[in-house]
């Protein structure tokens, strides 16, 4: 578009053209002050010219409430969206407490810890808990479980589902409003049928499945959690080029993040631990390196504290660093049991 077509006074138009501003593209990048100096007009006039130019070139103003730039949101809109977001309970109130109510939908949460601490147990528990029907305060949705280590045990999932159903029915014993409708939903078999299980045997398959998740979530409609147990297993082996590995992982995490935002589902990524040398001593840290540690929105580390299992929120944009103890029982993840009740050895 030519400057001559702008709805401004002919004198200014002439000044513009003689100063060399013949098309809009050259005009939109100048500041009003510079323009006023160059054309020897008042700053007020100059900024008017630029406003008109911007309007004509298709840019739109912000009137406070509606940001019309595509994909943008105001902080307030984001806040109210977040208020409506559901959380997926871990099964332990203390654990939920430090997470601000449970695992957040719409975010990627990384969970790391030493072998045997309960990462897989937490994964199965979340896959079950996401299915608690809405009348019982759950999400009533499906889960996708991506198993890279072969540690998923359907028998254990059955146990956890059974216990979850018992506990949910128990706590809702007195208000039966609408509960009859979901009678057939409250069966362990129904819960298990809604866990979609992928067994991955190489990192290529892992990348392929994650790329393909978009389609599957669309097909299955209400998937609210994707659990990857674990993200690191195949990547820590047979990948020689470390720089390339970092970039491939980065891309994976981008894909997961997009998925989480697009379908407001929770992505839970399990990670293994490794040792790292800091200040001359070896310390435990999560695997896959520093670049990866930036990739996940939240990072929770499960660790031993004496004889208790504890969860520690290491990184989160909205939560304080905090830790809470939990235990892994026959029923799944629960609050830590007080010591007096348990048999102590020796």
């Amino acid at each position: 578009m030519e400057v001559s077509a702008l709805p401004i006074s002919p004198t200014n138009k002439e000044k513009l053209i003689s100063a060399g501003y013949t098309n809009l593209a050259s005009l939109v990048i100048v500041s009003p002050i510079r323009l006023s100096r160059e054309l020897q007009i008042s700053v007020q006039e100059a900024s008017n010219i630029i406003k008109v130019t911007l309007q004509c070139s298709g840019a739109v103003g912000l009137d406070g409430r509606h940001v019309v730039l595509r994909g943008a949101q105001t902080a307030w809109e984001m806040f109210s969206d977040e208020q409506n977001l559901k959380h997926i309970s871990t099964g332990s109130e203390d654990f939920d407490g430090i997470l601000g109510g449970g695992i957040h939908c719409g975010e990627v949460t990384e969970v790391g810890g030493v072998p045997g601490i309960g990462k897989t147990q937490l994964g199965i528990q979340l896959g079950v808990n996401v299915q608690i029907p809405i009348v019982y305060g759950g999400l009533g949705s499906k889960a996708i479980y991506i198993d890279t280590e072969g540690s998923f045990m359907p028998e254990r999932a059955y146990q956890i589902a059974e216990a979850c159903i018992m506990d949910t029915l128990e706590s809702f014993r007195f208000h039966r409003k609408g509960a009859e409708d979901c009678h057939e939903r409250m069966q362990p078999n129904y819960f298990l049928a809604n866990i979609l299980y992928f067994r991955i045997c190489s990192y290529t398959e892992q990348i392929a499945v994650i790329n393909n998740l978009n389609k599957i979530v669309v097909e299955q409609k209400d998937v609210k959690i994707v659990i990857i147990d674990s993200i690191s297993f195949h990547f820590r082996q047979d990948f020689e080029d470390m720089a390339l590995r970092t970039r491939v992982l980065k891309e994976l995490s981008q894909t997961l993040m997009k998925l989480a935002k697009k379908f407001t589902l929770a992505v839970v990524v399990m990670n293994q631990v490794t040792t790292k040398r800091t200040d001359g001593s070896f310390q435990l840290t999560l695997a896959l390196g520093d670049t990866w540690s930036h990739s996940c929105t939240n990072r929770v580390i499960l660790h031993w504290d004496g004889n208790d299992r504890r969860a520690y929120v290491e990184k989160s944009p909205s939560l304080p660093q905090a830790s809470a103890s939990f235990s892994v029982t026959g029923k799944g993840i629960r609050n830590a049991i007080s010591h007096s009740k348990r048999v102590r050895m020796m």
Binding site: Y145, F152, P154, L192, A193, I195, L196, Y197, A208, V209
Partner: peptide, 22 residues
């Protein structure tokens, strides 16, 4: 890449069918 991913990704099964299979 989407096409390659689709072909290369293994199919899923439900935890229920996994249990029954076992």
């Amino acid at each position: 890449l989407a096409r390659i991913s689709k072909v290369a990704s293994p199919p899923y099964q439900t935890a229920l069918s996994l249990l029954e299979e076992r």
